[in-house]
């Protein structure tokens, strides 16, 4: 049975999501971790849109990839960059 294109796309996105999530947890450098987290949000945004939820995708793109990263960065700049 041939795999549909949409399913394949979904599968690739899910794999990327899991990889990003693992990378966020494993990274000791908090600056790098927040950038990877923003990449995670971007992939998540694609997943939402692909699953037919453009509302949530918009919020995810603006909050997850945009504002949260900025807030994380300003929090890091007030504290230390390396996780102990």
């Amino acid at each position: 049975m041939p795999i549909e294109m949409g399913r394949l796309f979904d599968l690739g996105l899910m794999t990327l999501l899991v990889l990003c999530a693992l990378a966020v947890v494993r990274t000791k450098d908090l600056l790098a971790a927040s950038i990877i987290f923003s990449a995670y949000s971007l992939v998540m945004c694609l997943v939402w849109d692909h699953r037919g939820a453009p509302d949530v995708a918009m919020t995810e793109a603006a909050v997850g990839a945009g504002v949260t990263t900025v807030l994380f960065l300003s929090a890091i700049s007030k504290t230390v960059r390396k996780e102990r």
Binding site: D55, M58, G66, V67
Partner: peptide, 17 residues
């Protein structure tokens, strides 16, 4: 259409930032 208060508000918040 897709969108609403949360989404628009976030976009505007990002603009302020």
């Amino acid at each position: 259409s897709p969108g609403g208060g949360f989404q628009g508000g976030t976009v505007f918040g990002a603009l302020i930032i």
